[in-house]
Design a protein around this nucleic acid. Structure first.
Length: 262
DNA sequence: AAGAATGTTATGTA
DNA sequence: CTACATAACATTCT
């Protein structure tokens, strides 16, 4: 479910819903009882998103780190919290509402050195104002690894997942298997720009729609599901109409249009 | 109802 | 260092 756009969106929403007030924390399923106990009653000061990672900041350098992984999900409720349903690993409630967390890969308390270590191993996040694309370029331009692998490597670029990888590379005409060092500086700049725009669109829309209104021949809001991407999970390229190839890359499925991408 | 999926880490082999 | 493979873990949807 989540690429960077989901996480940044959640950060905003959670800060708005729970920020500035004392939060009650519980772990209905018992996976996170210790952490919940420490957070309980603390004031949520800030929620930071870095790529696919969320940091909930509490006083005294107390930081809750959450990573949704492939299956993790948030459910938010305004007003009175409903009876917990299913495996809720963490529930945070404030005066205005509640967020439930299920299925995370990570949900843990971190001290400042741990937070520092986490951030140190993340590449620049196109959704962050402080992102430095040069750091990503330094890695990419020196690597023989395929650009499709590099773009998904969170230490190269933070926040990009399988869908945006497929889509951004299609739009830029770069084949995922091309070695990083064969990507030109101009191509990288354009790729960074496209990723930034796509991720920002995702934050705005709350879902991934990479196909433009022009290419779809209709307003983007009305594009049917299954037609919102150019190559991701497509059998024909929504740009040129040609056949789309798919194969495994680092254990994930990759898609590309051999006509549009080289 | 098996299998796939917007993810990461750790480990092992070459 | 890189590539490549395998496995573990989480949950929902078809």
């Amino acid at each position: 479910m989540p690429e960077g756009h989901t996480i940044h969106r959640a950060a905003r929403k959670h800060a708005e819903l729970l920020g500035g007030a004392a939060v009650s924390a519980e772990s209905p399923q018992g996976r996170f009882t210790d952490g919940a106990r420490e957070i309980d009653g603390q004031v949520l000061q800030r929620v930071d998103a870095h790529g696919k990672h969320l940091l909930y900041r509490f006083p005294d350098d107390l930081t809750l780190h959450v990573h949704l992984g492939l299956f993790g999900r948030f459910l938010t409720h305004r007003g009175a919290p409903p009876e917990p349903r299913g495996a809720i690993r963490l529930r945070l409630s404030g005066p205005d509402g509640t967020i439930d967390l299920r299925g995370p890969t990570a949900c843990e308390l971190m001290d400042p050195p741990e937070v520092e270590a986490l951030l140190a191993r993340l590449g620049p996040d196109p959704l962050r104002a402080d992102a430095d694309p040069e750091r990503a370029w330094n890695r990419i331009s020196r690597s023989t690894r395929p650009i499709g692998a590099l773009v998904m490597d969170q230490s190269v670029l933070a926040g990009v997942g399988n869908v945006y990888r497929a889509e951004a590379l299609l739009v830029q005409g770069i084949h995922p298997e091309r070695p990083g060092r064969e990507v030109t500086p101009a191509e990288f700049d354009a790729l960074w720009g496209t990723l930034t725009r796509m991720l920002q669109d995702g934050v705005r829309a709350g879902r991934i729609i990479t196909v433009s209104a022009e290419d779809a021949g209709m307003p983007r809001s009305r594009i049917p599901r299954g037609e919102r991407t150019y190559v991701y999970r497509q059998s024909t390229c929504r740009r040129c109409g040609g056949p789309v190839r798919d194969w495994q890359m680092d254990g994930r499925r990759a898609w590309a249009c051999p006509t549009c991408q080289s």
